[in-house]
Design a protein around this nucleic acid. Structure first.
Ligand code: FES
Ligand code: FES
Lengths: 141, 141
DNA sequence: CAATAAAGATACCAACATGGTATCATATAT
DNA sequence: ATATATGATACCATGTTGGTATCTTTATTG
């Protein structure tokens, strides 16, 4: 799967923040987006570390968007929540395969990965917000 | 990951069978390819059910390739061992997302999946055998 | 016709990734 | 001071996948 749940939730949260424009507490996010509370918190914290949002503690505090929607690229979010986009990893996981350079399959998978990265790296939050008007409104669990 | 371990092992086994041309027992496969024995068996059984190989029981028995290498496509193997190639599944796993049709992200991921499928579906065993002379000789685990 | 060597079937186990939870510490507004 | 928010972090639960074990069935061969 290219996009994990955590990344998806992050997108929804960012979208909400972008539309709100002001400080939003996790409690509000979690209510509006129907996402489990502690999980949402974890995600917001990560977004904070990633520099996408700023946080304010105390009553009335919450999270606020730091970047413009058009500056938030999908690949950045994926990297933050799932690590680098990678589809052609040699099956001998951790260990590097000696044939990686010459392996035919690896080359082909690399092409796919390259294409995937290209497409994903062009998608930004603004596009998602405009392109998919109902993204994140999937209340049908 | 596009290609799982099981699929990879299957490719190696098929390659070996193709080069051998005659009945090969799992014991031989497992020795030559350095793949765990019971796992290899399971994989060969699946390949049998998938119609890629025929089996012969009893002493001297084993598996023999049923198709020509150029008729064995990577997507078929992936389907057999990992299920259908799918990269754009909506995060609400099992349940179908009502917005699937209009979701911008889903559309983009669909494009990637389509491309991936196109590339993979053109790759056959013969290509792999010729293109990557040392595929499956990764003895460096 | 035994004994043996193979595969068929199937249930089980272990490691890992991921989604999700809980807890305690810290900062801030009132 | 207290309530309300996040920061950090450790933990738990579930599912998938790689891997194992066991028992049955079929065929060869002496
Ligand atoms: S088998 Fe390792 S890169 Fe191809
Ligand atoms: S959120 Fe379900 S398809 Fe986009």
């Amino acid at each position: 799967m290219l996009i994990a749940r955590s990344t998806d939730y992050a997108i929804r949260a960012l979208k909400y923040l972008a539309e709100s424009g002001e400080e939003v507490a996790v409690s509000e996010l979690t209510q509006k987006l129907k996402i489990p509370w502690p999980f949402m918190r974890k995600i917001m914290q990560l977004l904070g570390r990633g520099g996408f949002v700023a946080s304010k503690k105390g009553p009335g505090g919450g999270f606020i968007l730091l970047k413009k929607p058009e500056e938030i690229y999908l690949t950045e979010l994926i990297k933050l929540f799932q690590g680098p986009v990678c589809l052609n990893e040699c099956v001998f996981k951790k260990k590097v395969c000696a044939n990686k350079r010459t392996c035919y399959l690896s080359k082909k998978l690399g092409e796919i990965e390259e294409y995937a990265y290209l497409v994903l790296s062009r998608i930004n939050l603004k596009e998602i917000m405009e392109g998919g008007r109902n993204y994140g409104k999937t209340e049908n669990n």
